[in-house]
Design a protein around this nucleic acid. Structure first.
Lengths: 187, 187, 187, 187
DNA sequence: TATGAATGAGGATTCATTCAT
DNA sequence: CATGAATGAATCCTCATTCAT
């Protein structure tokens, strides 16, 4: 992948995350990426396509971070920790990605493919939750969607705190959060 | 307050919530409010002022809903339920308000006053949490900001599920959620 | 019809005729029409629609000038004169219209409707020619299309000469041209 | 002359004829010519120079086709046939050249030299007409410019018909057209 | 007071031209 | 020589805002 294409994508991720798609101008992306405005159109058909490409890319990266070293043969509790801690860590290192994904999942600019990719990301999480419910370690009173919503919603807001400096992520806090969120969903 | 001013505000709340401030045009607000575009400028100096006015108004409404019948003389557990269940109910009846507040709290279009109002809303919640920590019913291992983030983040994502139809709010579910989220923050 | 809409159309006719559609910028039309550039989009969806509207309008005016006082009950020779002299006169008074029509009939920017309108204009002429052929006053050796082409082509080039000042239209010349062109197509 | 230069010119002739100078992009010419866009600037200073070069070249080719085997020592009638039939044949084999010349003679992109070349092409024709008038075989009532306009205008429109398939050129039709157009200008 | 036509600054996108490879 | 990636000026079009009615 070209150097310029990559820097355009990074600039777009940062700017779309911070200002939103509609609040970000193409020349602004160009400046942030240190390329000419016209160059963006050499790599992306238009601004909307750029959004979809980076959304798909970042969701894929998130999914890969979930799946990397996933403890398929360990307990649901450990699987939850893998996902939760992985998500917190991911959002520390890729704050803009998480903000981008969270704030644009309902964007009217998303293509069907991008929406589909998002669904498949959720499906992966649902599968784990479902397994936990069958083992009766995750509470059946809570619908799957609620479990994902609580966890993901909490992480996003926590990430904002970490990024804004209101909160500092320590290993202790990470452990506490993992424990607390598990309490919120377990039987 | 004039009838037209009110319908402009309602239209703006709905549209800013759904499409974001930058994705919403003034003529679109005018059409949704069934007024002429020029009329909006009779009541609001400009689009940015309109955002700030409705943000302040909706945050005030939320704060009032928190404070209304607040059980100051009951247990922290009951106070939490009042806030949590109140927030869920508020977001059921005022989905757009919650989305508006959640998605625009970091907007670059907010005035200092609006940011200040947001802070004061958080301060109120922090006060309750602080009291809980002093009574040792809320876990000291969790920073106040983390507790607010977890709760608010969870509610926002849950509200999206309720609104999107993926989840239906029953009294039972509400009770379960209240219980679960309390488990996430209590000692 | 609004004053501004009309002046936009007049400006566009003049400019599209002189510089061609692609060589004419919207701000140039706006300046020529003494309106703001944005105003053009209040009346015409886009530049292409503007072209189609004026093409249809000018072709209609030409057709009406053909049909006005058309001597249906006179000889083909007189009918030819009516059309030929009418066309020359029309192109004197509406030089830009004729240039617009002539230079944009094969434009890739024309809508199906506009192409259709052009065809119907030709159909009217063909009908007259056909009648002349049946009366054996117009030469059968010449296909209808050739007759229309010769006459229309000649008029367009003559109009350029009149407009450029290389030729001056007198009543005598008009009569001569009518006589000569008739000789070119009659038996 | 380089192979590439020639294919650039051929591509430009075809595209400028079909889409007009302003409607033709340099990359489009490059693609049609199967060369890189930058290569065009190796042979032509800029797009405008390219237009002028091909205009001059095609007008020269037309002039040469007029002058080749020109029957200087035959009758004006035969000279007219040579020119008229030559022009029709030229426009059959070089439709794009004729369209290019016809549609760009008044272009604002032409250099003085190109305009001058066009004038000299007309001058050659005028000379013949003038001779015909002196011999009183061409009608003095018709100004020279009118004669050229009628003939050239007719040929251009006829060429469009032949090219569009509405008319098919046969030897008979060619003879008829020659005869008819001569009738239009002769005494 | 209410309107919506009018405006022009600003944003998305294209394309003539350059230049490093 | 040839290329095509890169550029930014210029183009089409939108929309926040104004103002005459």
């Amino acid at each position: 992948m070209s150097d310029k294409q990559e820097s355009i994508k990074q600039a777009a991720i940062a700017l779309f995350a911070k200002r939103g798609f509609d609040g970000t101008t193409v020349p602004l992306v160009a400046e942030e990426a240190s390329v000419g405005a016209g160059t963006i159109y050499r790599y992306f058909e238009n601004k909307e396509v750029l959004l979809n490409v980076i959304m798909q890319g970042e969701m894929l990266r998130l999914e890969q971070s979930f799946k990397e070293n996933f403890p398929y043969d360990r307990s649901i509790r450990e699987q939850f920790s893998h996902l939760f801690i992985g998500l917190i860590r991911f959002s520390q290192e890729n704050f803009e990605s998480i903000m981008l994904i969270n704030s644009h999942t309902t964007s009217r600019h998303l293509s069907d493919q991008t929406k589909c990719d998002y669904t498949s990301l959720l499906t992966f999480l649902s599968t784990i939750v479902e397994a936990g419910r069958e083992q009766e370690v995750i509470d059946r009173d809570l619908p799957i969607e609620a479990i994902v919503a609580i966890t993901f919603g909490a992480v996003v807001e926590l990430a904002k705190c970490f990024n804004g400096g209101e909160l500092t992520l320590t290993e202790d806090l990470l452990e506490t959060l993992d424990e607390k969120l598990w309490r919120a969903i377990s039987t």
